[in-house]
Design a binder for these strands. Sequence first.
DNA 1: CGATATAAAATCCTATAGGATATAGTATTG
DNA 2: CAATACTATATCCTATAGGATTTTATATCG
Lengths: 233, 233
Amino acid sequence: MQNRNSMNLTDAPDTSGFIQRSNSLSGSVYDAIFAQLMSLKIAPGSRITVDNLVRELNVSQTPIREALGRLEGEGLVVKTHLIGYSAAPQIARRRFDELYQLRLLLEPDSAARAAAAMDKEKLAALQTAAGMMGRREDTDERLRYSTFARQDALFHDKIMEIAGNELIRETLNHQHTHFHIFRLMFHSRVTEEALDEHEALLAAFAAGDAAGAERAMRIHLERSRDRLLPAFE
Amino acid sequence: MQNRNSMNLTDAPDTSGFIQRSNSLSGSVYDAIFAQLMSLKIAPGSRITVDNLVRELNVSQTPIREALGRLEGEGLVVKTHLIGYSAAPQIARRRFDELYQLRLLLEPDSAARAAAAMDKEKLAALQTAAGMMGRREDTDERLRYSTFARQDALFHDKIMEIAGNELIRETLNHQHTHFHIFRLMFHSRVTEEALDEHEALLAAFAAGDAAGAERAMRIHLERSRDRLLPAFE
DNA sequence: CGATATAAAATCCTATAGGATATAGTATTG
DNA sequence: CAATACTATATCCTATAGGATTTTATATCG
């Protein structure tokens, strides 16, 4: 019964045929903690004790410290000397504004570049990513929004990929990691409008209209921002 | 004689009067490795063995792993399972282009915002930061460029600070960390021109000319890019 | 002479143990 | 009853030791 509550840290089934264990233990620990942060199992601002992780993950302290250090480098956890680690605090109003300011500087331009580089198969991939959001089967409101948020991120990321600047893509993905947590905390049901805005974006992409895509992305971001703004009231 | 080559990891003299040791050991180790990366004492792409660090810093493995994990999260080192850590590889041409593309999207806009928010004391602080670069006393070419690079970064950072978007500021600083290493590898002596461009920026700031500051920043960045481009030949 | 196989060294990786510090709870005293 | 001092627990922090894997060197064989 010793492991009754311990997490499963084993790797994914190895389909490649290679024998080597692909992940280091510290890497697996990192994944586990990361997942807990993303799923809000660890709430923003709450403390993260390494002893608890030792018991929960059934691993020694060293790999946990290594993983927590990595998360600290990414800004997802903060460390205070002789106090310990804790999850990064909830995003504040100010940072929220800053984030959308950043997105508005980067993403419309990238949308224009993506439109210019568009071809048939890229467009198809985009439509697929956008189309998956159309499903409205989930009954659980929270779960539904969770999946929408993930797929919206995928859609935007796909555009960044086509735009071709990996650095900008990584930068936005990094920030999105924080943003994702925020959205999950205040999941509002205003997702239908976003789907229409994605449609407008797709139309511009299909037409290869760079200026139109840039405009559509700008409008989409501004509306997205305004939809989430009430969360701070 | 055991410690004849060990680094000094002690904290700065405590002038605040507080008794507590401000930095954790892993934090001091982080600073030490970070400094070695910035000063090119550890070359880009070269391996970083933790055993060597144990001997050099006279510290056990655990805090070193924690620090290396943090550096990995920041992208300054990479880890390969069962191989170990190594310094991030030299910046490639492609990423160089991407970086300047990112800067051109963010910094001119921030320059405009900074110009709009300018006042007497902020301007004075900027002029101080820019003025320090005027000194051309150093005889050692390499050292001179090293100090110029650092102060150029400070000047740009000061502008970002005045612009008011902390997120953008952090993003650029983060990237600059990588960029700094690149510049040190290919220190060219084309710093004089940059000083003139900074003068143009300061003039726009002094006049509170947002559009002018934006234009000046754009020109400065494009020229800076073109000056460094030959490094890839 | 080149290639393969074996052995040794270096290095990574993980676990355990003990000292140091902060936090929480309890008791004592004015 | 409130405030302070003290104790105990929890937690962080660091060091040491040993197993696992890769890399390097050496020797043997074709």
